[in-house]
Nucleic acid binder design. Sequence first.
DNA 1: CCTACCGATCGGTAGG
DNA 2: CCTACCGATCGGTAGG
Lengths: 220, 220
Amino acid sequence: MDMRDRFLTSTERSDAGTSLRRVAILKNAIRLFHEKGYRAASMRELAHETGIEAASLYNHFVSKQELLAEVLTSAIQILIDGIRAAASAAESHPAQRLRAAIAAYVLFHEEHLALASISSTELRDLDPDGLRRVLALRHELDAIFKQIIADGVRAGVFAVENTGITVMAILSICARIPSWYRPGGPQDLHEIAEVITGLVLRIVGARNGRLNLNRKGKPI
Amino acid sequence: MDMRDRFLTSTERSDAGTSLRRVAILKNAIRLFHEKGYRAASMRELAHETGIEAASLYNHFVSKQELLAEVLTSAIQILIDGIRAAASAAESHPAQRLRAAIAAYVLFHEEHLALASISSTELRDLDPDGLRRVLALRHELDAIFKQIIADGVRAGVFAVENTGITVMAILSICARIPSWYRPGGPQDLHEIAEVITGLVLRIVGARNGRLNLNRKGKPI
DNA sequence: CCTACCGATCGGTAGG
DNA sequence: CCTACCGATCGGTAGG
């Protein structure tokens, strides 16, 4: 066992989830899964980009599936954390909390476009165990928005016909962003966030959203 | 050359695009691509489900790629035709045309759920030539909705801040339906169509949503 | 339309 | 962490 092996081994033992090599592999996996898709990305190519041999990947992950599960669960976990933080920091008015949550979702794509893209396209290739974990997290995400909307309806500031379908519609707008948004393209992500938050406030029938005011500042 | 070969050959020659066998292969391909994804679906399995050997598939399609291109282009072509027909049949008021177009999009999933699902997940695996054709058709679809919305804005019955992003949002709501709608599930597709058309009219700031129309479909 | 087959590539393992 | 390797599977072709 040479010095390098000893270093790597002790690192893995002390903090198995965040060894430098493991993180490097995950980072490359995210990029490859994004560019080519899970199935088209090979462990050999992933190894090559990480600067090791294919067999060495299995010192860090038991299978390609574990890699995918790790990517997909961390993606949605990061998203949920960001949205919760934004909603908590916002004023307690449901429209403000909804606006903050949507803006956080849209701006999530600034730092994590590849993760967002993978999340909406590679779920099918996940094995049953990983799928169960991701679906549980998705349910958490749905619940955050359902709660805000239910609060708004109860307070009489939102008017929603069908909360379930409405939440699906709102999350669909956000989830599809990776399919049309391109960094450096014509639309800035902050501009997109502004427009989409406005659309969402209209969707929930917010009686006092910025975009629902006419030129005289009265509700439409 | 026996009778069967002669029949198949003459059929292909007289109407290459719609021979019975070719249609059967396409139908099975749609199901397999939907269930497993393009990459995970093998030509052997497709052949087996069609009742022929893998090599025989190549008498009908030059490659697996051609199969995917055919599926994806026909999917969006069917969708466009349905939406155009619905919008044309509707009254000329932009809100009515938009409502009809959205309802047609949602109800498209009644007959073509697998096609809709494939369209939103398998585009990545299409080769450059097929991708170019599909993107051209997508642009047509966008243009239909952009036109209706622009008409509504010009007529003063819609109020839209950013037409491009708004169209992307509206199409996103429809495009994600295969990710959460399940036939026989809690929500009926006609109910979904009703709710979503309502949301979309809110999104465009329609001054005359369903509840505010008089008998002639004009704003009150 | 079938039988027979090819070269390429894949995820993963043995052993050191 | 590497070398060497395996069994499986893939899309596609030759030839009839």
